[in-house]
Simulated assay, not measured.
Amino acid sequence: MTVYYEDVEVGTVEAHGDYEVTREEVLSFAQQYDPQWFHTDPDRAAEESPYGGVIASGWHTAAMTMRLLVESQLADAATVGAKGVDELRWLVPVRPGDTLRIENEVLEKVPERPERGLVRARTRTYNQDDEAVFSMIGNVMYLRRSDE
């Protein structure tokens, strides 16, 4: 079933997961997109960084969050992109071996045009210890039903 703007309810909270973070993925993403040493050099990071080991790039954490969001919610939604994100926060480092899950809470709906509306939702990502590691508010455009 396709989820349209009219189907989304403010206050709805949905939880989804699990995504296992691998060492290989952390290193590969960082080498390509965020090649800072504490993301790419496990030996040096273990010895010299305040994190005590290699950590995922924050942008990688955002990408993993997006994957969980698409797989669990947006794949069946009549979305046509987003206008951006607000309050993007990296709260706790994500490490190889972590297992991530998300909670998505619909905060607001704004009817923008006859053919679409904006849905603002807070997405929080948690690790296996229920620590919030990431948070953002997405501004997602949903199509409206043409027969209403």
Rank of each mutant, 00 (worst) to 15 (best):
V3Y: 00
E6D: 05
E6Q: 04
D7M: 00
V8H: 04
E9A: 14
V10H: 02
G11L: 02
T12F: 05
E14M: 13
A15V: 15
H16Y: 09
G17Q: 05
G17K: 03
D18E: 15
L27Q: 03
A30F: 05
D34S: 01
D34Q: 01
D34Y: 01
P35D: 11
P35F: 10
Q36K: 06
W37T: 04
D41I: 06
P42C: 14
E47W: 08
Y51R: 11
G52S: 10
G53F: 04
V54D: 11
I55V: 13
I55D: 10
A56E: 07
A56I: 06
H60N: 11
T61R: 09
M64C: 07
M64E: 03
T65C: 08
M66Q: 02
L69A: 14
V70T: 04
Q73P: 07
L74N: 00
A75H: 14
D76R: 06
A77T: 03
A78E: 06
T79R: 00
T79H: 00
G81Q: 09
A82C: 02
A82W: 00
K83I: 14
K83S: 15
G84S: 10
V85A: 14
V85E: 13
E87V: 10
L88V: 14
L88S: 15
W90C: 06
L91F: 05
P93W: 06
P93D: 10
R95E: 08
P96V: 10
G97H: 09
G97C: 12
D98T: 07
T99E: 15
L100N: 04
L100C: 07
R101M: 10
I102S: 01
V106H: 09
V106P: 08
L107P: 06
E108D: 15
K109E: 12
V110D: 13
P111H: 06
P111L: 10
P111N: 10
E112F: 13
E112H: 13
P114Q: 06
P114E: 11
P114F: 02
E115T: 15
E115F: 15
R116W: 13
G117T: 11
G117V: 10
V119W: 03
A121R: 00
R122S: 03
T123G: 02
R124C: 03
R124K: 03
R124F: 01
Y126F: 05
Q128R: 02
Q128C: 02
D129H: 12
D130C: 06
E131Y: 07
F134V: 09
S135W: 00
M136K: 03
N139M: 13
N139E: 13
N139D: 12
N139Y: 08
V140I: 03
V140H: 00
M141Y: 13
Y142T: 01
Y142A: 01
R144G: 03
R144M: 05
R144W: 05
R144L: 06
R145W: 05
S146P: 09
S146C: 07
S146A: 12
D147W: 02
